[in-house]
Every structure is written in structure tokens, then in C-alpha cells.
Design a protein around this nucleic acid. Structure first.
Lengths: 249, 249
DNA sequence: CCCGCGGACAGCACTGAGTACCCTGCGAGC
DNA sequence: GCTCGCAGGGTACTCAGTGCTGTCCGCGGG
């Protein structure tokens, strides 16, 4: 859209691509101040622009809707994710790769814990914001699913596997993320997400890459021997046998 | 279905949905007629009520928002699903149960194929409707997840497993449903959904109940022997071994 | 028969989000 | 000087959604 190679002209710091418009930040700050003290629905766009000291029309220049001001950084994060997946070659295990992509979202949340927690409380109690968040999450999920569809092209049930795995990865990520947000950003979000994503990966028969020394040691200590007769038996049948054998943790 | 279709008005008032007001149907019909010939966003609520010959205020008595008129039966279906899950005891396998609950949604779509296909085309091209559909799907997913959380209470990672499995089941169901809708309602939707849900179930180590004579025969024909040493090895490690042994279809 | 009651509906007025159009001021380049 | 481009301000409009008032029913009881 924006060619924007033309510098802003004031001889500014070369923040090149994303020259930060101070107005955007000012609008976000004003909006959250009012949202927190009066609530989201009790705050009109006119209130926000009045506090920020700008014109009403300017608000909609920076945010296509009132909801967008609550999620100011998701657009960039989504672009990062698609770039990350787009630049991935064949050398990575696909499920591992989408898990790493999901970690980009966690990183964004963790960059600003207090802001993330405030936003979480808002979205939890405002139905309109919850609906908006769903559409954002849906776009992340679609990005992951599209990547997996490309990687699974030709495989039997490729698109089905892609959609299901993407949904499972997103659900696992969000489960850990939300429990971290519920605890006011205390605790180790990264470890929780790693654990959740590990469960998702293992459900689809992918070995999670060891992310800590302890887990690596676990890998070393294992000793598994499996004997399977009759090639072609469906996987679920085998897994069922194993679970009963192992005592179904 | 169910409930007294003969009782007119008087008597019970707790049941708002039981008696079928013809006005509701008339509004849905008028709305879809206009949506199909002019598009959703080009149609105002005033247009709809003018065509239906009723007052504007009556529209919002029956539908809390303009989007709701596009999904007139989801509220009932969601109630059916929660009732179905709420009435379930301990005797059913949990994952199997949520898959059966998901089939309730398919049944609703299959009851009225042409309507479902028209609605699918609308929601595909109107962003606002897509967002609304997401919030509907989210409520189904939450219903499934809440049920699984109850069943998994006490298990390690119970809520995580519940959320991930619910998301996977919904994704599998929607994958099959959408491909059926994309084909204008041709083909066997039930078989496609059964297959998709079977994949989701098998991913979590649950044997899909045989739904056709062929599959039952498959089950009979199998002969699986598994020997596992060292109790306590993580499932993914075992599955990995099996996949390499079987030659990873 | 009349009256009161309650529910369904119409009509109106209002808020607030989002959009289209036009205005202004300002810096860059001719 | 001049104009062009452009970020921002301001005005007026559309339309979804809500609140309120009034009206027309069918119901019961005096």
C-alpha cells in the first residue's frame, strides 16, 4: 500500500519502515485510560479523541474500528508469523514449525505483561471484544493451517490433518497463555506454553524438541522397545494397546 | 419437535422458543430474499421489515442483532448440545461423546441443505458474518471443552487436554462440513464427518466406534501385538517408534 | 358491559459507530 | 511567488441498536 520510501522530511531518526506516529500511541494510551476507569462500552470514540486532543476522524485513520485500538499490535504480529512461515523451507518438521510460530504470539504478549493482563480483563468481560479477539485468533489459526496444508500437500487427508493440528496447537497455546494471564503475569509463561505445545505435538506423533536440560536428560534416560505385528494396522488401534499396557497415565 | 405444538400461547411462558411465531419465519424469509438479491451489507433492517410488512422494532424483538437472522437455529442447537452433554453419565467414553455431540450440529445443517449452502456462501464473503459465525462456533467449542473438563477432572493436564481435544474435534467437524457445503450439499456429509472425527479421535488414542459394516470388518481383521518395555515412557516417544516401524503412511 | 391487565406490535426519538466529502495548514518542489 | 501532496480537522450523513410511548388485541372478574 504505502510506497513510503519518501522520508517524513523532518530529517527524523531513520526508523525507516515503522516510523512511529506518536498519535497512534497517544490514542491507545487515552483509550485504555478511559476503558479502565469507566469500562469499554461506557467510553465513546468522542471521549477518546477529546482526551487525546485530536479530531474524531483521525481516530479512524489509525484504527479501522473502535475494537482495533484494544489490539494495536496483532496486525504486526500476524505479519511476522506469515513471514516466519513463508520463509520456512522443507528442512523443518512441520508441526514443530507451527509450534514455533505460535511462540511468536506468546512473545508479543510477554513483551508487555501489564498491558496484556489489562487487555485480558477487558476482553473477558466485554462480549464485543471477545468476538473481535476470536476473529484475530482465527487469522492466526488460518496462517498455521495454510502452512501445514502446503507441507501436507499430497498426503492422505492433508487438509484435514492441517486444520486439526492447527486448531490443536492454537488451543494448547491459548490454554497456557490464558492461565498465565489469569495469574496476573506471574510465573513462567514460556515454560507453560512449551509444556502445552509439547502435549499437542505428542498427540500427533511428533517428538517435541527438548527445550530444557531436564527434558533432554529424560530423553537420554528412556529405553523403549516396541514390537508390532501386521503392518497396516491403524494407529489408534496400536495406541490403544499401548495405553492399556502402560497403564494409561 | 417435542413440546406442545397445539397449546396456543397461554399456559407456560418459561418456554420462549417452544411456540413457533410465524413472524420469525417471515422475517428470516424476507431477510434471505433480500440478502441473496442485493447482498447482506446492501440490505438494511428497514428494508427487511418493509418487505415483511412489520414494524422495525419487531425485528429486534426476535433477533438481538442483524447478524442473528442469518443463524436462526444455532441457539436451539447449542441448547440441544448442552442438554445432550449434561445428560451424559460416566458410562460413555468422553472423546466419543463429544464427537457425537458435534454430530448434532451436522444434523442441523443437513436438515436444510439448500438453506445451509446459501448461508455458507453469504458468510464466506461477508466479514461481519464470518466474525459472528466464529463466536457461534466458539460457544460450541466451549460446551465441548467444559464437558471434557468435567470428565477429565483430577487427571494430569485435564483442562489442557479438554481444550485441545475440543478444538481438534470442532476443527475436524468443520473441515468435513465446509467441504460438503462447498460441494453444494452433494455427497454424503455424514460419512465425511465420521471420517474426519475418526481421525481426531485416533489422534488422542481413542478407538472410533465402528459406524459402518466395512469398518467393523476392518476391526475384526486386525491383529496387533505390542510389547513395550520400561513403563512410564512418554506416549510420543512410543508413537514415534511405531511410526518408523510401520513405515509412516 | 365495562374495566383492568398484560402481551404483541408500531412508531418515534435518541445514541453512537463508521463513512464521505470538504476544508485548512504546512512543507516540498517547480 | 506558485502549486502539489498530504496529514489532520470538521461537518453531515447512514444505519444498527435501545428506550419509550401509544395502540390494538384477548383475557379475566366485577
Amino acid at each position: 500500500m504505502s510506497s513510503s520510501s519518501a522520508a517524513p522530511g523532518r530529517g527524523e531518526k531513520a526508523e525507516a519502515v515503522a516510523a512511529k506516529p506518536p498519535m497512534r500511541e497517544a490514542l491507545v494510551a487515552a483509550a485504555f485510560q478511559l476503558f479502565l476507569e469507566r469500562g469499554y462500552e461506557q467510553t465513546t470514540v468522542d471521549d477518546i479523541v477529546a482526551l487525546a486532543g485530536v479530531g474524531r476522524r483521525s481516530f479512524f485513520r489509525y484504527f479501522p474500528s473502535k475494537e482495533d485500538v484494544v489490539f494495536p499490535d496483532h496486525e504486526r504480529c500476524l505479519a511476522d508469523m506469515t513471514a516466519f512461515l513463508g520463509a520456512s523451507g522443507e528442512e523443518h518438521e512441520p508441526v514443530q514449525r507451527v509450534c514455533d510460530a505460535a511462540r511468536l504470539v506468546l512473545r508479543m504478549y510477554a513483551e508487555n505483561p501489564t498491558f496484556s493482563v489489562q487487555r485480558y480483563r477487558l476482553t473477558k468481560q466485554v462480549p464485543g471484544l471477545r468476538a473481535y479477539e476470536l476473529s484475530v485468533v482465527w487469522r492466526y489459526e488460518r496462517a498455521l493451517a495454510e502452512y501445514l496444508r502446503r507441507r501436507f500437500a499430497g498426503r492422505r487427508d492433508g487438509t484435514l490433518r492441517a486444520d486439526v493440528i492447527a486448531a490443536a496447537v492454537v488451543a494448547a497455546h491459548n490454554n497456557a497463555l490464558r492461565s498465565w494471564l489469569r495469574s496476573d503475569g506471574q510465573g513462567d509463561a514460556t515454560a507453560a506454553v512449551d509444556h502445552a505445545l509439547g502435549y499437542a505435538q505428542s498427540s500427533f506423533g511428533v517428538a517435541p524438541a527438548p527445550r530444557s536440560a531436564d527434558e533432554a536428560a529424560d530423553d537420554q534416560a528412556e529405553d523403549v522397545v516396541v514390537v508390532v505385528s501386521r503392518r497396516g494396522a491403524p494407529l489408534w488401534r496400536v495406541v490403544q494397546e499401548i495405553e492399556t499396557t502402560l497403564g494409561r497415565d
